[in-house]
Write a protein that binds this DNA or RNA. Structure first.
Length: 421
DNA sequence: TCTGGGGTCCTAGGACCC
DNA sequence: TCTGGGGTCCTAGGACCC
């Protein structure tokens, strides 16, 4: 018998910041989303002040000043690198690991006595803390869904480790709101309440067949998982991704087609770079532009392109930025956001050529070498060393990141200085 | 004035085929 | 006015997650 463990970083982004800046300990800290828009990570002290997840910064400005809350822009190169360190450390404890998100993973572990599991969990916690500086919590249980729940329990206790046994499930579920179950969101919790299901225990005791008819196979699976019947296997092999998105809100609204074009060209160029870094190509492209969601009559449109030959070359992709900007631009519209979605992804090595390819294979190889060279230069001398003119020079639409910490672990110029001479 | 970004999966409905 | 049944594939949109 095996049990699942869900391990996640406590207040992950805040913990990454604290790992390199001890001054952030024992005080309220928040990390903001891109463009310094919303709160996406909070220290316990910040949570205690009543700051909610996802709240816009401007709405808590007074609180920030009153309590001297440390406010940080997000620093994804740091978090991504710290995540890798945590995951690598955790992989020592079981050969069966599923990395589920930037800050959490499942491990499958041999069933043992509750005491032994709790001890093992404590060792895992201490090791991760020592090797990376990140505090984590662990929940053990019979299914992934229950392990998520156990992890929630772990966060409420002092030890940071919790084993949810079959005997305890009912009492814990009775005290759990539907919204707090993995897979139940706003809509589903409302819909379930209409059927007389109000908490986790109600859902556990519901008839899975009826639930499937009334809702979906997802909720049916959830009911089974709550009953200890494991329906969600550990996905240890990273499956090939199906899509890749680069989108940003603008630092300032965009009013001209030229600037919209620049932004789209930049995102497209970034997306192509990501494709190449993962040795993938894309066969389909979706480009969108939108006004603020909060304005009177929000605008949001998109255009799609089927590529004649799957590619990851910026040179081949860039012309679509101009076409898209022309199609999406509207005079007088106040653009706040744009993005690029690459779909129909496949491995570079299995490229399907087209009879009607406008480029010769020699030309394709030349282009490929050009891209490789460009990537090498940008890796060595820093992102943005070489760019395409279409991505713009002034770029007034660039995002704001006014409180970003240093990229301590991924950038030579930004290493931690222990002592200045 | 200011309100994130990047994913996955499921379902319904339409197009198309025999 | 009458005008089948069954299947697959694709896409858009919704819901959810972190």
């Amino acid at each position: 018998m095996r049990v699942f463990s869900l391990i996640d970083g406590n207040n992950f982004y805040v913990s990454c910041e604290r790992a390199f800046n001890p001054k952030l300990e024992r005080r309220p800290v928040v990390v903001l989303s891109n463009n310094d828009g919303c709160v996406v990570s909070r220290s316990n002290e910040a949570k205690a002040l009543g700051i909610k997840m996802g709240v816009p910064l401007f709405q808590i400005q007074a609180l920030v000043e009153h309590h001297a809350i440390a406010v940080l822009s997000s620093n994804y190169s740091l978090y991504g690198d710290m995540s890798q360190r945590v995951m690598t450390t955790l992989a020592q404890f079981s050969p069966d690991q599923e990395v589920y998100s930037i800050d959490e993973c499942f491990l499958s572990i041999d069933q043992a006595s509750p005491t032994a599991l709790l001890e093992y969990g404590t060792v895992i916690r201490q090791t991760v803390k020592r090797c990376t500086g990140i505090p984590v919590s662990l929940g053990f249980a019979a299914t992934k869904t229950l392990a998520k729940l156990a992890n929630r329990q772990a966060k409420q206790g002092d030890s940071g480790v919790y084993y949810l046994s079959a005997e305890q499930v009912d009492s814990v579920l009775a005290a759990t709101e539907l919204r707090d179950l993995w897979g139940i969101g706003r809509k589903l919790s409302k819909a379930l309440a209409l059927k007389g299901i109000h908490n986790g225990l109600d859902l556990k005791q519901a008839n899975p067949v009826v639930i499937r008819q009334q809702f979906s196979v997802l909720v049916e699976r959830l009911v089974r998982e709550l009953n200890g019947d494991s329906c969600l296997p550990l996905e240890t092999i990273a499956t090939g991704r199906q899509s890749l998105i680069v989108s940003r809100s603008f630092g300032q609204p965009v009013f001209t087609q030229a600037h919209l074009h620049e932004a789209i060209a930049s995102y497209l160029s970034k997306a192509a770079e990501k494709l190449r870094a993962q040795s993938l190509t894309s066969g389909m492209l979706n480009i969108f532009a939108a006004s603020s969601r909060y304005q009177e009559e929000p605008y949001s449109e998109s255009v799609s392109f089927n590529l004649p030959v799957a590619t990851n070359s910026t040179v081949e992709l860039l012309p679509y930025a101009a076409t898209a900007a022309k199609a999406l631009f509207q005079d007088g519209q106040r653009f706040k956001k744009a993005g690029v979605v690459l779909l129909d992804l496949g491995p570079e090595t299995e490229q399907q050529t087209s009879l009607f390819d406008s480029l010769s294979s020699e030309k394709r190889e030349t282009l490929q070498r050009l891209m490789q060279t460009m990537d090498q230069i940008n890796r060595k001398h820093g992102t943005g060393t070489l760019t395409f003119a279409a991505t713009g020079l002034e770029r007034p639409w660039l995002i704001k990141a006014e409180h970003r910490s240093s990229r301590h672990t991924t950038c030579w110029d930004e290493l931690v200085i222990v002592k200045s001479i």
